[in-house]
Nucleic acid binder design. Structure first.
Lengths: 359, 359
DNA sequence: TTTAGCACTCTACACATCCAAGTGCCAATC
DNA sequence: GATTGGCACTTGGATGTGTAGAGTGCTAAA
């Protein structure tokens, strides 16, 4: 059954009002809200329809109506109007983007903070996927018992590890290991590194077995795991100012999401490049806790999603404002990281990478 | 006025009981608690004394007594008995420590998590101070528009940054920059880098001014700032299981501390090498939020505090258990990082450094 | 010095009441 | 047929009252 224009208008009003106040909205307050020249009874019956169609629900018999996830979904997809950022808001964002930050990671962190300031919700920034293809390895000799292993990926991301050893190595061994790595692992992604590749590498390094094993273990870890450290969350306290999170249990469910950072990576797999996504409550899966909303915008480099920046708030968050902020930042970011890409397309010049990738 | 033995015993009992239950403890329950063969009236008068001496206080007239920060202080310093870790607890910790983790940072994170599991409080691990002395710089050419700058400090800590540039560089320029950095900055700490040092460096790189400026800015940042990213907090949700944090305002004050991570660094300045410190509420300064307790153990490398691992919980936390866990881990850690130091004392072999220093 | 007894204070809880908000339904009206 | 006013009904929240229980301070007696 299609929604009539009037139903749409009423649904939009209900959601707008609920987002603003957080109180269930009743037929009377809507009727008084001039824009409808209808009595509360009429509105009541329309709301009744909307409820049976699944867009609204009542916390209890004598309360007003509250949007369901499905209600929010239609609102976000087709009802809400565009939000235009105000002067101060633009200033906050522009300041971050004009800041001379050489690292995209830092930039994203700052932007997330700024967006949190504008919207008053918690924000996160997230960088790095897990299916990188190795471009090459580099090593730096630190001392006889340790060295730095640097992995440069095709998409420009850089990770590194400081590897400690039990037995001393020489610069020569290290150099040989680097060459062996480059010879065997270049062009492969994590899931392509199988036993034969490993044996190949160990064969090349057979005079220093222990060392080779250690190196492989580190490489494996660098390739395989999402890098939890790269999820930065800011402004969790802001959530405590919303009544829906004053309930300890609710807040706990959100907090525990924050502590399982790898879940962000899963969430990000829903990301559509260049487009702001909205996940409402546990709409589809169990990815997000109930009563919360997620809005995020993926960051793509060379057509590949390498991260995201986003907002976490109550389900009734001000989606239009949040979406506007994220869009504005994402549009600006393309300008920031675009030039480097343009300059050096053939080499796929690192548009990013940033230190945070190291770990 | 000195505390009589009996007063001490009563104070200890009150605190033990309060830590266990979280309820204010009354004279009657203490009197019944066999170990005193005194009537409740006597205990009452003793408690009255303890109250006027500042060790106890009453939430309201008809409630039992609750320890003050001063009360906890005496408890921690001289009253509490030693806690012996149980088999399962030892197992949890041993497993972490025996894990082949090449990086001290990772090790500390895991240990913090384990201690959280044992004690059921929030934990943190923190790595890196800000007054490092530069041992040398290394660079890695990534592509024409970016490179990796690696700073190796005297104490073995390693930091790195992926630096992006607006103009292309050559491997030769990069190599020259590295040599210039090593020539001018080696052996200096952040506060020793003044204008003349900067001018010296710029003079050496005068044919590529922009590049030199960028490099200096990055170096400055690497040297100067506490690295917020290096504070890892785990198990915040655990705190929500204690009634004292069910109050939203209280919990908020703790959370906001977590969001100002640099405050950990300040807190750490109180650290005494090799010794577990306890900070109770806002005992002295405003460092810690009221109603919370901090217990932490600094990690020293070459006599210098480079980090800490610790526990954050309600003021009435089980200090003896927490202290025992931290002590055990710290003792074990010395063994872990000791060997590398021993093997290569002259060179001040990196006992650590770990990737997380990069950022 | 210790103790038993007692009056007093305060909180937590259960219970009752009242009120406002909002609903659904129905008959009257446009 | 859509809209509306009227009305009975439901419900949660706020407010008030009474009671039980825990704990105290004080005092007089042991």
């Amino acid at each position: 059954m299609e929604l009539s224009e009037r139903k749409k208008a009423i649904l939009k009003s209900v959601i707008d009002s609920y987002i603003r106040t957080g109180d269930p909205v009743g037929s009377k307050s809507l009727a008084e809200n001039e824009q409808f020249s209808l009595s509360s009874a009429t509105i009541r019956s329309e709301m009744n329809d909307l409820e049976s169609m699944g867009y609204l629900e009542q916390p209890h018999t004598s309360a007003g109506r509250v949007p369901t996830p499905q209600g929010y979904r239609t609102y976000v997809d087709s009802l809400m109007e565009k939000y235009f950022l105000g002067m101060e808001e633009l200033e906050v964002l522009d300041e971050v983007m004009s800041g001379k930050l050489n690292e995209v990671g830092k930039l994203m962190d700052e932007a997330a903070k700024a967006i949190g300031q504008i919207t008053n919700y918690a924000t996160f920034s997230f960088l790095g996927g897990n299916s990188n293809i190795v471009d090459r390895f580099e090593t730096v000799f630190v001392d006889d018992y340790s060295f730095l292993l640097i992995m440069i990926c095709k998409d420009g991301l850089i990770r590194n590890r400081h590897v400690k050893l039990m037995d001393p190595i020489t610069r020569e061994t290290l150099e040989r290991a680097k060459e062996a790595l480059n010879a065997t692992l270049t062009g492969l992604s994590a899931d392509q590194i199988n036993l034969s590749v490993i044996l190949d590498f160990e064969e090349k390094m057979k005079d220093s077995r222990n060392f080779a094993t250690t190196v492989l273990r580190v490489v494996h870890e660098m390739l395989g795991s999402y890098d939890q450290e790269k999820v930065h969350i800011d402004g969790v306290t802001k959530l405590l100012s919303y009544p829906e999170f004053m309930n300890v249990a609710k807040f706990q469910s959100v907090l525990s999401l924050f502590e399982q950072r790898q879940r962000f990576a899963e969430l990000m797999q829903k990301a559509v490049p260049g487009q702001t996504s909205v996940v409402i409550g546990n709409e589809d899966d169990e990815l997000a806790p109930p009563d919360t909303g997620f809005v995020f915008h993926p960051i793509t480099v060379g057509g590949k999603v390498v991260g995201a920046i986003g907002v976490i708030g109550p389900q009734r968050m001000d989606y239009k404002k949040v979406v506007a902020s994220l869009d504005y930042f994402a549009k600006g970011l393309v300008g920031q990281i675009g030039p480097a890409e343009g300059k050096d397309q053939l080499k796929g010049a690192s548009p990013d990478g940033n230190g945070k990738d190291s770990e």
